[in-house]
Amino acid sequence: MKNKTIKSYLIVFILIIILNFFLPRILPGGPVAFIQGGDDQSFIMTEEQKAHLLSYYGLDLPLHEQFYQYIFGILTGDFGLSILYKTAVTTLILSHMKWTLFLVGIASIISILLGIILGILSAWNKRKKNDAPFFLAMLMLGAIPEFILGMVLLILFSTKLGWFPFSGSTTPFAQYGEGIIGIIAGMKDILHHSFLPMMTLTVVNISSIYLLMRNATFDVLKEPYIYTAEVKGLPLKRLLFRHTFKNAFLPVFTLIMLRFGFMLTGAIFVETVFSYPGIGKLLQEAILSRDYPLMQGLFLIFTITILGMNLIADMVYPKLDPRIRRGERTVFE
């Protein structure tokens, strides 16, 4: 990778670290204001309690000292203590992250795979006859807001039909027993709870990948080398997946990597609708409660994920495209 790329990554990263400190603090009201309660508070806080909280969380320190502490924390890998949960931010994020990763991970894999395959087939069919009905259907699917789809699925399958649970990620306090039977029972329970949110994420995301892949494939199908491959009498499978896919995937690849990074935050709507204990819900609570350390931790995780995905894209891209072995092409141009 070129020095210039590394430099631009570094600059963006430093900017984000600085932004990360100030962004939460721009918000009106601090964590203590939240603890005091808004218009629905339930206890009376005395001035002593308030002063104690402020000093306990170091919020009475001058801003620059808070900033040093924050930078020091990042350098030592310590994001501090969540004010809302009174738990280490790292622990908190990890315990929620696993659910989101599970949800987003599987949904991404399914939607990427299906989106790619459908995109290629659709582009091929478009050339042969007409993929309009299918294309339109996908277009419509892509126009459905995530929360609407989730809501509709929830009402139909949970409230009305009762096929799936209404909320949560597992049956509370479930004991799955020992050995393989226990593991299977556990997996069944988790899948049962995650089915609808996963479906929602998959369906909503499939369309954009499909559209990207379809257009990319369509462009590739016009290339002379595809003509060559066709004239060569290659079987359709080989033609599409060896000759077309490899080329059409290149422009889609970076976008997919970027999307994957953003999907982590995007899960917030699905997690809200299905009350799934993922990172999106945590983020919402963190913002609402002005939990500075937690917000900083989450924000950093999100940006690092997105940057990381970019970095991976930059590093993998030359491997996919033999024409670019010197790593000229990066997400940051």
């Binding site: 009106p28 009201g29 204001a33 808004g38 629905d40």
Partner: peptide, 12 residues
């Protein structure tokens, strides 16, 4: 309409 923390700080 504002959120909890904003509400409290505006009142404060």
């Amino acid at each position: 309409q504002v959120d909890t923390a904003t509400f409290t700080s505006l009142m404060g």
